[in-house]
Simulated assay, not measured.
Amino acid sequence: MGQVTDDPGRRRRLRRQGRAAVTILLVLAGLAAAFYYANSYFQRTAPKAAPCMTVPTAPDLAPRDVSLRVYNSTERAGLAAATAKVAASRGFRVKQVANDPLNRTIGAPAEIRYGKAGEASAKVVARHVPGAALKPDQRGDDSVDLVLGNGWKAFGPVPAPVTATPTPVPCPSSSAKP
């Protein structure tokens, strides 16, 4: 049988190989940790995917689409008629001009009365009458009552027209199976 000799050169080589193996393992562990951190960081800060397409929403109604009744709840004679002329010049379809049929005293500039079907129309009128109070009621049609109160001075400035704005629509999932 062969005799094992204690070769100092061989021990030195084995020690160097062991250190090299440990060094390589430490470098690989460091690189793995760096890739893991970078991947998790970029997943947290990545921008959200843009929507596939946009669908324009319908613009608000125009004054020409609003059926308006102008009522006077003040003691000022002719206020409803003068206001109705201005409303018509702004494009509103004025259907009636009279004193307030409910005989209420309104301290605010105006009160806008409307039913469920006239909510969009009431919002159009409210854009023209700053400070008006929106008052829903039980009517079934889309007509709107503009009731002038003691605080009424005049219509506000003509608002800018509302245009259609695109609404993002989410992309269908690519993982959906047919």
Rank of each mutant, 00 (worst) to 15 (best):
V22L: 13
V22M: 12
T23E: 10
T23D: 10
T23Y: 11
T23N: 11
T23V: 13
I24W: 11
I24P: 00
I24C: 11
L25T: 09
L25K: 07
L25Q: 09
L25P: 00
L26M: 14
L26S: 12
L26D: 09
L26A: 15
L26C: 14
L26F: 12
V27F: 07
V27W: 04
L28W: 05
L28R: 04
A29Q: 07
G30M: 03
G30L: 06
L31N: 11
L31D: 09
L31I: 13
L31F: 13
L31S: 13
A32S: 09
A33R: 06
A34N: 12
A34L: 15
A34Y: 10
A34W: 10
F35R: 14
F35E: 14
F35Y: 15
F35V: 15
Y36T: 15
Y36G: 12
Y36P: 04
Y36S: 14
Y36E: 13
Y36I: 13
Y37N: 11
Y37S: 11
Y37K: 11
Y37A: 14
A38N: 15
A38W: 12
A38H: 14
A38F: 12
A38G: 14
A38R: 14
A38Y: 13
N39R: 11
N39A: 13
N39P: 02
N39C: 09
S40F: 06
S40H: 09
Y41P: 00
Y41T: 07
F42I: 09
F42L: 12
Q43A: 07
Q43L: 07
Q43P: 01
R44H: 05
R44D: 03
R44Q: 07
R44K: 10
R44G: 02
R44F: 02
R44S: 06
R44T: 05
R44M: 06
T45L: 05
T45D: 03
T45V: 08
A46L: 04
P47N: 02
P47G: 00
P47L: 01
P47T: 03
K48E: 10
K48T: 10
K48Y: 08
A49I: 03
A50V: 04
A50F: 02
A50D: 04
A50W: 04
P51S: 01
P51H: 00
C52M: 05
C52Y: 01
C52I: 03
M53F: 15
M53E: 15
M53W: 15
M53Q: 15
T54M: 04
T54A: 02
T54D: 03
T54Q: 06
V55P: 01
V55T: 03
V55R: 00
P56I: 02
P56Q: 01
P56R: 00
P56W: 01
T57Y: 06
A58F: 08
A58T: 11
A58V: 09
P59Y: 02
P59F: 00
D60I: 04
D60H: 07
